[in-house]
């Protein structure tokens, strides 16, 4: 279940949206392709409403590179579950960026600061961001509401390139969630 953000203190800087940070870990040996088991692995860490609340949480959770095994951080707008079945995601898609080991923590921080700071300027299109830690590589994803809106997805791509500070030759791939479901890749 999601949690309410704590009361905002005097002097806190409010964010445009409230966000929830989730964590999931694939249990070894278990088949976890169904949304039921994925749902049960999702743990809500915290919902926050201000910059200061974000930093408080962020400084208390392990950074992505410190985690071992197959696990994910999900930072989504409050009220949107980090799964394609959510009504905000069902027509959406994601930009995926595969990263060599060693880059994920810095890139994840760059990505979420851009999301929280409203740097994408695509209205309410951004749903959330995911850091996926895997054995051979790590993957960053940025989810938006409308996969069919090319103007929005290219604008997101340009902002991603600017804020992430990743090598020029990094491959960025866009996938509609409906395609990920069809090819069973996510």
């Amino acid at each position: 279940p999601r949690k309410k953000p704590p009361p905002v203190k005097d002097g806190d800087h409010l964010l445009e949206y409230h966000y929830t940070l989730w964590f999931s870990r694939k249990s070894p040996g278990k088949q976890s392709s169904s949304s039921v088991s994925y749902n049960s692995q999702l743990k809500c860490i915290m919902t926050f409403a201000s910059i200061e609340q974000f930093w408080l949480i962020y400084s208390h959770v392990a950074r992505p590179h410190e985690l071992s095994g197959h696990c994910d951080y999900h930072l989504f707008k409050d009220g949107i579950k980090p799964m394609w079945e959510d009504e905000a995601n069902v027509k959406g898609g994601k930009w995926m960026i595969r990263l060599k080991k060693g880059l994920i923590s810095r890139c994840w921080e760059n990505l979420i600061l851009a999301v929280l700071g409203e740097q994408f300027i695509v209205g309410n299109e951004i749903c959330g961001a995911v850091a996926s830690m895997r054995y051979q590589e790590d993957i960053l994803s940025l989810w938006n509401r409308t996969a069919s809106n090319n103007e929005v997805t290219s604008k997101i791509r340009e902002t991603l390139k600017r804020v992430l500070n990743i090598p020029q030759n990094t491959i960025m791939e866009y996938k509609a969630h409906t395609d990920s479901i069809k090819d069973n890749s996510s």
Binding site: L15, E52, W55, L116, G117
Partner: peptide
């Protein structure tokens, strides 16, 4: 309406604030 926009350096500066500790 107006959106609340923050750049990276401002967000990082807020990390130093006592409220974020």
């Amino acid at each position: 309406g107006t959106r609340i926009v923050y750049d990276r350096s401002f967000l990082l500066k807020c990390r130093e604030s006592p409220l974020a500790q």
